[in-house]
Structures are given as structure tokens and as C-alpha cells.
Amino acid sequence: MPVPRRLTVLLAAVLLLGGLSVWAVVHAAARAESRSLPRAGEPAAGPGAVTLAAGHERRMLFRTMAWGPHRDEVVSVPADDPGAPRVSAGVRCLRFHASSGTGACLQAVHGSLGDTYRAVVLDARLRERRAFPLAGIPTRTRVSPSGRMAAWTVFVSGDSYAGTNFSTRTSILDTRTWSLQDNLETYRVVKDGRPYHAADVNLWGVTFADDGHFWVTLATGGRTWLARGDVAARTLTTVRRNVECPSLSPDGTRVAFKKRVPGLPEDAPWRLYVLDLRTMRETPVAERRSVDDQAVWLDARTLGYALPGDFGADVWTAPADGSGAPRRLLTAALAPVVVE
């Protein structure tokens, strides 16, 4: 093919492919724009005061995912009327948890060269006390029952071609001394009674027992364990296989977790279970769908967890003892927590 002809073909290809690209971006931008407008039939939200302080009515805080100006903000509804209009203090969080007047909010900071992420410790009025940069995409966060300790997990991805190496990084923060244990992988690991170290150890999903002790998922060699962590001794001790995203009950006797059940499809491999820590007996929760979330205890008997929904995610609830049936609690919502 002569050179002018080749250049003509190239120009045509550039125009065609460029046009298609621009169309795709413009289309997506318009869609993003439309999402900032509220829509009829969706949970309504408006600005207002949100507090984590005690002495108010029992309420539920969560990240609302309904389209509109308050999308992705932490909102509050009365716990006994979850369908009520959502009240937002204007704090955006990808993941959120709170306890005893302390909030942990993992948020995105939009930059010109991509998003960066930070963990923000919030006071009872959701004002920023201190922020910490994060190494990757937020996935889990928890505050200890006393409100003193906070923990979070982010995904860190490799950079290889078509990189498929994902790892996690879990940190624990003491909000009294502001000392940050940046990477829990530096803890000494005792697996099956013996000291253990491996490059592929990953930790995620801390749930606090008290300010010095917690439970967490430990993964290595393609398997997962429930591990008990000691903040002062900096140790992790595995106690049981095939446990992910533990969530300790308010009385500290049971752990709700997601379990990889054999025979389920590879893209939906988990079921929600509750482990009794005294008898080490597992009870399946009535939810029959695959749950990929760290459940929360809405009270001593009830679990809340997110499932994919029309707006990204909905929050569902089911009894922790395996009885009853799952029920949708919140539409267009993620990361719920009950504050009293």
C-alpha cells in the first residue's frame, strides 16, 4: 500500500476509534451527571445534624448509595424506622464504622492522576480529628467497642502486566496515643501451634474484642483462618480454618463470618455462618445467597450485611441463630452500624 493511502487509512481509524472513545466518555460523564440528581422512588436524603454521641435515640448510620447530591455520604435514620428520610452531615465515606463516639471513615480523595485514599478518625459530631494516608482501595474498617482503637484494611494491587496480584494491608490505630501499627503482617504468627512466616500472608477484616484484642482473617497458601490478635504482644494465633471477615457479637461470645462452602459456584462461593466461640459450633444463617461482606451485629440477635442491589448495594438482615428469613432493611446502602 502506498504511503499516502496508509496515512489515509490511519487517519480514518484514528477518527473512528477516537470518535467512539469520545462518545463513550461523554456518555459515561452524562450518566455520572444524572446520578448527582435525586430521582423519584429512591430513598430521600437531606442535610442535617448527625451525631455519634450517646443519649439520643437508637439510630442506624450507613453510606447511602442512592443517586442524588448525597450519594456516598454517611447518613442517619432512626433504627426502628429505617425507611425514614436520610439525614446527612455531608461526610463522604467508602467504608464507615463507629462506636462510643468515635467514627472511622475510609474515603477517596479525587486527584488529577487518579484517586488516593485516606482513613479519617471522626469525633462524635463527625468532624475530622486526624487523617492517615492509605496504600490502596478501602475494603473494611472497624472501631473497638470503647471507641479507642480503629482498624482498617485496604487492597493493594501489583503492577505486573494485566496485574492480578492483589494483597491486603491491615492497620490498627490507637486514637488516644495516635500510634499507628501500619502493617499487621509484621505481627508474629502462630499457625496451628507453631511459629509461621510466609510472604503470602494476608490479613483482613479486624473485629475488636476490646482495646487490646481482636479477631481477624489470616490467609496464606490459598486458605483462610480465623486468628486471634494481641495488640500489645503483636501476635496472631490461628484458631479455626475457613473463616473470613469475622464480626464479633456485642457480648463477645459469637463470631459471624463468611465461609467458603464447597460445591458453590466460583463467583459466589460464600455463605454466612455464626461460630459459637465456647462450643466452636457453626450455625448457618438463613441467608441462602453468597455474602461478600463483613457482617455487623445490629443487636445481640440480629445480623446486617450488604448484598448487590440496583444502586450498588442494599443492606439485608437475618437472625444470627439461623432461624427466620432474610429481609431487606435498607435500599441503596452499605456499611451499616447501629449507634445508641
Binding site: 463513550a24 466518555v25 456518555h27 459515561a28 450518566r31 455520572a32 488529577s112 492522576l113 487518579g114
Partner: peptide
């Protein structure tokens, strides 16, 4: 380039 696209179109992974 990818994050420029996402900057213009939030959550525009399809774009």
C-alpha cells in the same frame, strides 16, 4: 489516561 477518563466520568469503568 485511565484516571483522566474516570475524572471526567465518575465510575465510568465501561468508558
Amino acid at each position: 489516561l485511565a484516571f483522566l477518563v474516570l475524572g471526567v466520568a465518575a465510575e465510568g469503568y465501561d468508558a
